[in-house]
Design a protein around this nucleic acid. Structure first.
Lengths: 165, 165
DNA sequence: TTATTATGGACACTACAGGTCCGCAATAAT
DNA sequence: ATTATTGCGGACCTGTAGTGTCCATAATAA
């Protein structure tokens, strides 16, 4: 249960691209040396980000990457979902097993046929339910944090530190 | 970024053990057939749960497993951490790279030496910071959900469905 | 036209989840 | 005490996803 290194690289790359004083394009060379990752690998990651409309890329001399939208419109969730994929964090491998029938029977006063859950649709796993709630919570948090909000925070800290001095 | 199947199995097994009408011990045979998993594999998982004090096990005839604490004292977080390990969800692979120095410089009015972050300790990655916040949020949610709370929920639903009928 | 830069396919390596098998140890019933 | 039963744990296997490299090709600006 860990985020991949690729996600780390992607986030760092985007933060770099989000720096306000940059002139338009940042080449893969600069990015890779800044992050300490090989060009070949990092370019794979940048391609993904481009395919999903997070960054724009232009080849040729003085080419490179730039953010495709405003930094405040790129959330952590966006980035993570591009790199990690959009599969659910948890899937009950156990649908329609004994387990769920037992859970459904209990408390139902032992009715003769338990077509009930069939009719009520889905017969969703309670565990899955809880885990989906967890995922939604997580997503909400990640939606509230953007590349821009991170930059703002960093900025604030530095100024604070400087003024304290 | 997905929870392993083992976590799924562990949670289902614990829900099974948490059923109120059970007499003390549930054998691996019953568990594995209920969940639809092989005995060999499931026993590995149960061992982990035992080593962490989630369940108790007794060998011999009529042996088996039972919860080592009350179902309301077994949180989803407990189970997940036993199975998935306790490593952080996100680690910045990038400490002390160019990236962080740049972030620190910006807004600090270009002071001559940036020993500042060295002195202020840690020089923690802002991205990591955000991700740690996300993890804490997630953990809080998972701490609030226990095996018992799930059983209660399932119970309530069944009764509701029955009375509606 | 040419040098530069991104793109994408093919391939290699590694780690780990997922799973099996088997011998050993502990226990309760007889 | 013996024996059948049940859990324990180590060794092993397999497939796949993450990580990473290399190279040929396409696109672009000077």
């Amino acid at each position: 249960m860990q985020f991949s290194k690729s996600t780390d690289y992607a986030l760092h790359a985007l933060v770099h691209l989000g720096h306000p004083e940059r002139c338009n394009n940042v080449g893969i060379k600069e990015l890779s040396s800044t992050l300490g990752v090989s060009e070949s690998y990092l370019s794979k990651i940048m391609s993904k980000l481009r395919q999903d409309g997070i960054v724009r890329a232009v080849p040729g001399v003085n080419g490179g990457y730039e953010l495709a939208r405003l930094a405040e419109q790129i959330t952590f969730l966006d980035v993570i979902q591009v790199i990690e994929g959009r599969q659910k964090m948890f899937e009950c491998s156990n649908t329609k097993s004994q387990q769920h029938r037992l859970l459904a029977e209990e408390g139902s006063a032992r009715r003769e046929r338990d077509q009930d859950q069939e009719r009520s649709g889905k017969s969703e796993c309670m565990i899955e339910k809880v885990m989906e709630g967890a995922e939604q919570h997580l997503h909400q948090y990640l939606r509230e944090h953007t590349i821009q909000s991170l930059l703002d925070e960093a900025f604030k800290r530095c100024n604070h530190g400087a003024s304290k001095k």
